[in-house]
Design a protein around this nucleic acid. Structure first.
Lengths: 267, 267
DNA sequence: CGATCTATTGACGTTGCTCAAGAGTAGTGG
DNA sequence: CCACTACTCTTGAGCAACGTCAATAGATCG
């Protein structure tokens, strides 16, 4: 499989293209989301983790269940070990989920985007196993867990189970990607394509988006040294597959990025 | 951390000790379990995955729920993709759970021992994500999933959720162990100690037990090459920390094995 | 007793980690 | 607004752990 050969990319190595660098990214700064009570015009609607639940639930319950809240960058929503009291769904912004080993280094388990649920890892034993940190200032839908559980049992009995199961599948996919047989290049390519697909699912551009997490977190997510992440990014830019203008990224050649990852792993 | 330094073990490297090799292992061949209807004298009772369920359930339901069945070595209970119809609990024997990537190599997710449940990964979406293969001829408790779900909802409402959640925790632990920062030595040591602890929990010897899985499976579980597994085993025997007499293994120096793994990771 | 699967051992090459030093960027307070 | 500090990122050099390939020995099964 040529996906694992290093520094090949099967294309001429272009010098870091001045014209390319000059070309400004067309991304808008993120619009501040206006917190509305209704879900109807929420941008996350098509991917909202509570979607099924809401569709099966009389509209009158909505306002009882969800309130909105701002949450500052760098702050923690839960720490691993906290007991469960409230679940959240991201309306705008992003979070990382992680846990720390006793030696103090952290294992990043995932990045949460608008529509994703935060805290579902605690549904089974009422205690969080992961810490959740805001990567940027975000807005959240807040749902008291008891109300949520009651409504879920009544209107979507499988919902809780599926949230926990989603966790299994996501983490299994991550474990697969971080297997030794996949090179650093493959992992980073996968990471970018995964983010790209999730942005597309949210109706956002799949080629230009914001990398809200520092390379350190990407490294801890993909189980590699941060220097290696940096080197891969540099290489991808040299081949003009990618263009990074912190904190934004543009994927110039999706096909070549995909060629670095096995078909079967693509999101 | 000196746990990651290779080929040190902080002890004199003993030649493969002839006296040691001659000394026969004291393990009995596994007694064939007699399949009884009652759970009362089942050896797996203290660790049975359905323990909570049974304790909360009138005894009259037991016979309706569980039947026993023999299952031959090498056979598959489910394949990934099968739809869920029956859950099993191991009465005796062992299984491996795994899935295959499109390229054909397999990722082993775990080894199941007596008392462990088989098939719970399908509880959320009624479809198995993993394949289950018997590592030796085994006996199983068979439970039709519909009956089980009904009874669980009635007598132990959190049980289903906890089974799925258990999966999350186990796989997360595995992911942690297979992180790059842990050496091949550390992983194998961890693997042995994990098995040891699980045997102890079942009232069996924690220093002498049967390694029912081939090294190939251990390698795919710990995400390493099978040659590396073999080398570590050899090294551990050279330092007489371990003694292997296929398919049995004896841990001679538990303390030194534990010293190879971080405290925090120990089961 | 041959065929097949499993384990052992050696030689070699490579990927990616570590350590280290420097440049770029952001946040803070005078 | 600028200077100072603290991150974050970049880049290089060296090294070692582990994967790969290959050949052999041992075990298991019909």
């Amino acid at each position: 499989m040529e996906t694992t050969t290093q520094t090949d990319y099967s294309k001429p190595k272009a010098e870091l293209n001045a014209a390319n660098i000059a070309k400004p990214l067309t991304i808008e700064p993120p619009q501040p989301h206006i917190a509305r009570q209704s879900c109807d015009d929420c941008v996350t609607k098509p991917v909202c983790a509570a979607g099924v639940l809401k569709r099966n639930m009389p509209a009158s319950y909505h306002s009882r269940l969800f309130r909105t809240q701002r949450f500052a960058k760098g702050k923690h929503l839960f720490y691993a070990g906290d007991s469960l009291s409230t679940l959240y769904i991201i309306k705008s912004g992003s979070f990382k989920t992680y846990f720390c080993t006793e030696e103090g280094d952290e294992q990043v388990m995932g990045f949460a985007l608008p529509g994703d649920i935060l805290g579902a890892d605690a549904l089974a034993d009422q205690r969080h196993n992961l810490s959740y940190m805001a990567l940027e200032t975000s807005t959240l839908c807040v749902a008291p867990v008891n109300t949520l559980k009651t409504l879920a049992n009544r209107f979507a009995p499988n919902w809780l189970l599926q949230q926990v199961h989603g966790e299994v599948l996501r983490e299994r996919q991550l474990m697969l990607m971080t297997a030794r047989k996949y090179s650093a290049d493959t992992r980073v390519a996968y990471f970018l394509l995964e983010l790209s697909a999730r942005h597309r699912a949210r109706g956002l551009s799949e080629v230009e988006f914001k990398l809200t997490m520092p390379q350190r977190d990407i490294a801890h997510y993909l189980d590699m040294a941060l220097e290696t992440v940096s080197r891969v990014f540099t290489r991808l830019q040299e081949h003009s597959i990618l263009m990074i203008k912190r904190p934004y990224v543009r994927i110039n050649k999706v096909a070549e990025l995909k060629a670095m990852v096995d078909e079967s792993l693509l999101p």
